[in-house]
Measured scan of single mutants.
Amino acid sequence: MFYPNSPQTSPQLTQIPYGQQYAMMQRQIQQPYHPFATTEPQARLYPYHYQGPIQQEQGGFITQQSTAASPQYVQMRVTPVDQSIMSGYPNQTANGSSSSSFNYNIHPQQQQQQQQQQQQLRHHAMPVGSVPLQDDRYRKQLIVNYLAPDVTSTDLHELFSRFGELDGARIIYDKQTNMSKGYGFVYFCHAEDAKEAVERMSGYEFHGKWLKVGYSTNPLNIVPSNSSPYVHAGSRGAAG
């Protein structure tokens, strides 16, 4: 039997160049792979992502010199942007860049009308829970959420009447099932009393439920100042 490094198959040491006398086997001759043993700084910083320098080929596509990437890492192929796409944008300079302001050559009167329309939209648009300043009635009506099913309009009136005089209180019921929808409205005579009720009743436990109280901004629920107070009856038909 002959071994790869046996004296019968191995040459004389004098015939082997210096430095390879003890590297006779194939696994010894093959050098191990060192990912950080390279002179390129990109490979030292990113050993798993770097795959060699990027070269520009004919046709405008950018390719990489090395083989496919590892399945664990996804390499994105980048193509140059066609400058003709950006030619339609206004205020574009000769080098292809555009300024931040756009001039669509709008007539001054049209621009003024658009600004007025935007101001009107901001004036009428009102986020949930906010209180408008032009109508004091919005500051007097509250919406009470997360009410228990057994709470009546009379219970709601008695709960909030300790903060001040009320114009009314009612629970909203479903017309088909005649069941409470879980929320109601309270109408105060003074805005200061309503503000105190919002601050003190939010998070209050009532009939096993934690109440959420806020201003009601729905104009359909506003009680006119010259109208008669609501009837605080315990029956659902009268309260709904």
Rank of each mutant, 00 (worst) to 15 (best):
Y3I: 04
G237K: 11
K175T: 03
Q56R: 10
V128Q: 11
S180Q: 04
H34F: 14
Q58L: 15
G60S: 07
F61Q: 03
S216V: 00
R137H: 04
F160K: 01
L166A: 03
V81Q: 05
N145H: 04
R77Y: 15
T63W: 15
I106A: 11
Q42T: 08
P4D: 03
I85Q: 05
A23V: 13
R200V: 08
E196W: 08
S202D: 02
K181V: 00
R139H: 08
I16G: 05
N95M: 13
L147H: 11
Q176N: 03
V198W: 05
A125Y: 11
Q55W: 14
I54T: 05
A191V: 05
S130W: 14
K195A: 10
S130T: 13
Q120D: 06
K209N: 00
E57P: 10
G59I: 15
P53C: 15
C189M: 11
P219R: 00
F61G: 02
P108V: 13
Q26H: 10
Q83T: 08
Y50A: 08
R122G: 13
C189W: 02
Q15F: 15
S66P: 12
F188S: 00
T93G: 10
T14C: 15
S161R: 12
G59H: 13
Q30I: 09
N91L: 13
E165Q: 12
Q114M: 05
S228A: 07
C189H: 15
N103I: 14
M76S: 06
Q42D: 09
I171R: 01
Y73S: 04
Y230Q: 07
G168F: 02
T9F: 15
S84Q: 13
A69K: 08
G214I: 00
L147P: 10
K212T: 01
Y18L: 04
L211S: 00
D174T: 01
A43I: 15
E205I: 04
I171L: 03
N5A: 09
Q20S: 11
E158Y: 13
H123C: 11
S87Q: 12
T67R: 09
G60R: 06
S101K: 06
E165S: 12
P47Y: 15
G234E: 09
L133M: 04
H34W: 14
L133R: 08
L211D: 00
Y173N: 08
E199N: 13
T39F: 12
H207G: 02
Q116H: 05
Q141P: 00
Q116F: 11
A94L: 13
T67Y: 14
Q115T: 06
Y204Q: 05
I143T: 00
Q114D: 06
S70R: 05
E165H: 12
A239W: 02
Q134S: 09
T152N: 04
F185T: 00
Y187I: 01
R137I: 04
F188H: 01
L166M: 15
V144S: 01
Q20K: 04
